[in-house]
Design a protein around this nucleic acid. Structure first.
Lengths: 187, 187
DNA sequence: GGCAATGTGTACCGATCTGTAAACTTTTGC
DNA sequence: GCAAAAGTTTACAGATCGGTACACATTGCC
């Protein structure tokens, strides 16, 4: 089984885009950082945009897999998993390579709502929300959608705040808030 | 009192940066959009980065002035103002030019924590947090800092979510969550 | 062995990037 | 009224942008 060059290209491009941003990363830099020749890149992807979309798709798959499986490791009840999501986020924030959410940044650099990159970022957020709506329903919430939206608001807020205010404890504060909301909703 | 060209340049550059992003906005585009010649721009600002910093400073001043004064219009008690912040955000989200938070986007495009632009964005967030800590204290919270952090998490989450999930009601959901947290903290 | 797929290096295209030079025009203060 | 300040146009420098052309090397498979 040979290591597919295409996958390697996407995997490493993802790292560079995450570290340096999309507009700030030129194709020449990717040639150096990925070790894949430009000719080869353009055989796999017709444009830089297509490469970005592939990188975002990989990120989406990896993030959801890691995030959800970590949550399930940390708790085994739906309500517990809703809360455990903040512990999983906290672990992420503590990684020294943490640079915020790739999809928030993608949406920030490609702002037109019809832009494929923006739409892909929005879809990622939508899938996450749906997952937590499902968890909220299983937890027995009176209004699962409402509760899940609030949980997601706290998650997004923590993700953003963890970038700017390292002195705070966004994951801890968000978890405490989520616990109050959860108790209120399940009461 | 002649309209200062420099201020006009910063004001219009701010709009373009907000609409199109920082890396995606070249100086030549700014020449066209602001009507100020490039030579004149570089007389006022030695680099593009300095212009961005000036634009962010203007944004910081305007945002805080508008946000805080709107909050005080909507409520006259500290607790009421904490909640009213979400109504003010909701009004902002409904503007058709809404494109998310300028400082989140600045931090996303300039990610190194030592970068002047990143630091300026972080400072803006810090000032906002301090303001809400003050409000929480005046509202009689047991732990003003903790409550304010949670309020801010909800605000940031709503700001981000309003970009991606227009179908939801981030401001309303966040306000409802804030009310629960406030009642718990003041009980 | 041989062929096709997949990869490579290098050189290049036109456009755009930030930033500068020089000569000229308008506005402003006194 | 006049000089300094502030603004303008035009042109350009050097680098980098996304993307392509072409000739050559490596690999997997039968």
């Amino acid at each position: 089984m040979r290591p597919n060059k295409r996958d390697e290209l996407v995997r490493k491009s993802l790292q560079v885009f995450y570290r340096d941003g999309f507009h700030a990363t030129g194709m020449d830099k990717l040639v150096v950082e990925t070790g894949v020749s430009k000719t080869s890149m353009y055989k796999h992807f017709r444009t830089k945009e297509e490469l970005i979309l592939a990188a975002l798709q990989l990120r989406d798959e990896n993030f959801r897999k890691d995030f959800f499986s970590r949550i399930e490791e940390l708790a085994d009840t739906p309500a517990g998993q809703l809360l455990a999501s903040f512990d999983a986020l906290g672990e992420w924030f503590d990684e020294k390579e943490y640079r915020g959410c790739m999809f928030i940044k993608a949406g920030a650099e490609y702002q037109e709502i019809d832009h494929p990159i923006h739409k892909q970022a929005a879809e990622h957020k939508r899938i996450l929300l749906d997952h937590f709506i499902d968890l909220a329903r299983k937890a027995g919430a009176q209004d699962p959608e409402h509760l899940a939206c609030q949980i997601v608001l706290l998650q997004e807020g923590a993700i953003v705040t963890a970038v700017f205010l390292k002195s705070c404890d966004p994951a801890g504060d968000a978890k405490a808030a989520a616990r109050v909301l959860l108790d209120t909703e399940l009461a």
